[in-house]
């Protein structure tokens, strides 16, 4: 019997198993265990969470492999890690470490301003950020097996993630009603690969899972993103920048599962302590807008 690794089904399927779940940013084994205990479906191993990357400035790179290995060995849930946009060697290196998913992420400083990774070449699956359907389908065209909204990471401000999710959902709905001739023009206007738009129209939805990310700071934020049609959520700085990460993590997981049970979310939101301090998007300098990295 022929055994095939790294197929689309195997790579996209991995993300399908994460649906309805929360993926949490962690910077060491201790946080990884707290995240697993809180019910995370996966952890993202990082050297710094996005809000600290903002504060530190300078060039943000892939995490030290020691951190990735420490996290990998601490938990039984899948481990993800971030590589810089277009950084072939960081990605290959993470793949060799046995990371379960790579995030080609705008949270790190891009290594290539023109080319994203050709993700179909890898056995390990990739998740990529997107602000609109053009960007989403280009990443799928390159071989991304999972999408997430870009949002504006490390701000604790949900407004950009909402904007991106609403836009992508609306653009998908528009594609579903299009005729063949309209579809090619839409591909041109969006800068989208035509075959990916055809796939969307044929199957009635994006061919890969689409999570929310970039600014989720409270259980209500997580539930809001689920309400808007996200398949799950990434929480970066929100959990370990809060007063009580254990409690906060559990509350976000529950709010994501039961996003339509408002009474429950009200209960979960009580006495959580202070959430991370947020940043108003209009106060960000253009160079500090992570969502504008990549294309």
């Amino acid at each position: 019997m022929e055994k095939r690794t790294g197929t689309d089904r195997v790579k996209r399927g991995m993300a399908e198993m994460q649906k309805g779940g929360v993926i949490m940013d962690v910077i060491n084994a201790e946080q990884a265990k707290i995240a697993e205990e809180a019910g995370a479906v996966a952890v993202m191993a990082l050297e710094r969470v996005p809000s600290d990357i903002r504060a530190a400035g300078g060039v943000a790179r892939m995490a030290d492999p020691t951190i990735v290995e420490e996290v990998r060995d601490a938990v039984s849930i899948p481990v993800m890690a971030k590589a810089r946009i277009g950084h072939i060697v960081e990605a290959r290196l993470l793949e060799s470490l046995g990371v379960d998913y790579i995030d080609e992420s705008e949270v790190l400083t891009p290594a290539d301003e023109v080319f994203h990774l050709h993700k179909s070449d890898y056995t390990v699956p990739f998740v990529c950020g997107a602000k609109d359907l053009g960007e989403a389908t280009r990443r799928i065209g390159e071989g991304a097996s999972m999408l997430r909204t870009k949002g504006e990471p490390g701000t604790g401000n949900i407004v950009e993630a909402v904007r991106h999710q609403r836009l992508i959902q609306g653009q998908v709905r528009k594609v579903l009603g299009m005729s063949d001739d309209e579809l090619m023009t839409e591909a041109k206007n969006l800068g989208a690969p035509y075959h990916v738009l055809q796939d969307i129209r044929e199957n009635g939805r994006l061919p890969v899972v689409n999570f929310a990310a970039g600014g989720i700071a409270t259980p209500a934020d997580a539930a809001l993103m689920m309400h808007l049609g996200s398949d799950g959520v990434f929480v970066g700085s929100g959990i370990f920048k809060s007063d009580n990460p254990q409690k906060f993590g559990r509350a976000i997981v529950e709010a994501t599962t039961h996003y339509d049970d408002f009474k429950l979310i009200a209960e979960l939101s009580k006495d959580l302590g202070t959430a991370m301090k947020g940043i108003e998007i209009s106060t960000l300098e253009p160079a500090d807008r992570m969502q504008d990295r990549g294309w």
């Binding site: 690794t5 991995m14 046995g98 998913y101």
Partner: peptide, 15 residues
């Protein structure tokens, strides 16, 4: 659990 290995060892086959 995870008896075939990590994600890169995940696969499909006919049974």
């Amino acid at each position: 659990r995870n008896a075939f290995g990590r994600q890169r060892e995940s696969f499909e086959a006919l049974l």
